[in-house]
């Protein structure tokens, strides 16, 4: 069932920050900016409830905008990865 139709939409919860799937060219730019390969990004499991809710696939990079008491807003990037047993 899509998140919007569920009784509780976790994406609307106040503790869940905004997750967006980045476009390929934005990812490329990000990797160039930090001079890293995609595997050097922090990971997020493909089984994560938010990942499932927004329909991200393994290999996608998520841009997460969080609220911070000191910085106002802060952005974080995570690579969707499969769980390794």
């Amino acid at each position: 069932m899509p998140v919007e139709e569920r009784e509780i939409n976790i994406l609307k919860h106040r503790l869940v920050p905004e997750h967006t799937i980045m476009k390929d060219e934005d990812v490329k730019e990000l990797l160039e900016k930090f001079n890293i390969s995609i595997n050097q990004l922090p990971k997020i499991l493909n089984t994560d409830p938010v990942v499932k809710a927004i329909g991200a696939k393994v290999g996608d990079v998520l841009k997460i905008v969080r609220n911070s008491p000191t910085a106002g807003k802060t952005t974080y990037y995570r690579l969707v990865s499969k769980e390794v047993a």
Binding site: F34, N35, I36, N39, Q40, L41, P42, R66, S68, T70, A71, T74, T75, Y76, Y77
Partner: peptide, 20 residues
């Protein structure tokens, strides 16, 4: 470059403390 990395060179934080 301001990123926080571990010994595998994997990024842990993009901005120190997320607020600089």
């Amino acid at each position: 470059d301001g990123t926080i990395r571990d010994n595998r060179n994997v990024i842990i934080q993009f901005v120190p403390g997320e607020d600089m």
